[in-house]
Amino acid sequence: MFSQFLQLFLAGVAQGCVYALVALGFVLIYKATETVNFAQGDLMMLGAFFGLTASAILGWPYWAAILFAIVVMAVVGMLIERIVIRPVLGYPTFTVVMITIGVGYILRGVVTMVPGWGTETYSLKTPFGDAVLRFGGAVLAMEQLATIALTAALCLVLYLFFRFAKLGVAMQATSQNQLAAYYMGIPVQRVNMLIWGLAAAVAAFGGILLAPVAFVHSNMGFIGLKAFPAAVVGGFGSVPGAVVGGLIIGVVEALAGFYLPEGFKDIAAYVVVLVVLLFMPSGIFGETARKKV
C-alpha cells in the first residue's frame, strides 16, 4: 500500500521535473520580456530530437547527446529572439504571443519534414536502462531517480548562476528594471537574447529527460499545456515557483491517475490551478504584492 504510493509519488515527481523545466523556460522569458512564449513546449520537443539524433543516429554517448542538445538549442533560442522576437518588441503583447504560437507551429512542421525524424515515434536509450532500486516493498525506476537528480543538479547550477555570476545578476536586474539596466550599460538586448538561449537550453534538458518515458515525437511539445499551469501555480514570474508548481502538478497527476476514475489525470493540472488560484490569486510564490508601485 505504502510502497505503491511511493512508486506513484516518485513517478509523479519525475514527470513534474519535466513540467518544471518547461515552466522554468516560460518564467525566464516572461520575466525578461513580459512575453509568454507558447513555443516553449516545442523547443523541448526539438531539443529531444537533437538529443535523439546525437544518441541514436550518430551513436554518441548519452551525456554527449545531452550536451549537444543543450548547446544546439541555446543557439536556436537565441536565433529565435534575434530574428522574430526582437523586431516586434514594443508591439502589443498579443502580437508577440501570436508570433511565439507561430514559431511553435513552424517547429512542429519542420521536424516532420526532416529526414530521419518525420512523424515517427522514437525512444531514447539512457545508461540507466530498466535498472530499479528496491526500497522496502517499492520498486523505483533508476530512470526516474536520475531524472530527479539531474533536475535538482540543474536547478542548483541555475541558482548559483543567478545568485553569483555577474551575467546571472544582470539577467535579474534587466528583468526587474529594464531602463535602469540600460543606464548601467548592460546590453539589454543581448541579455534578453541570452535568456531566450537559456530558456531553450533548459527546455532541451527537459525534453531529454522526458524522452525515455514518453517517446520522442513531433507532438510531444504539447506537454507545454501542462507546464503552463505549473508556471501559473508557482506564481508566473517566480523561478522557484515554476519548479514547485511543476512538481505539484506532476505528483497530483500521478496520484489522480491511479486513485481517481479515469479521465481525472488529464484535467488534474487545471484543477490544481483553479484550487491554488482560488486561495492564492498570484500563485504560491507570487511577487505582485512585493513589486514596487
Partner: peptide
C-alpha cells in the same frame, strides 16, 4: 530607478 529585488550590494555590482 534601483533594481528593487536585488540586494544593495548587487545593485552596486551592476
Amino acid at each position: 530607478e534601483v533594481f528593487p529585488l536585488l540586494s544593495v550590494e548587487d545593485n552596486l555590482r551592476m
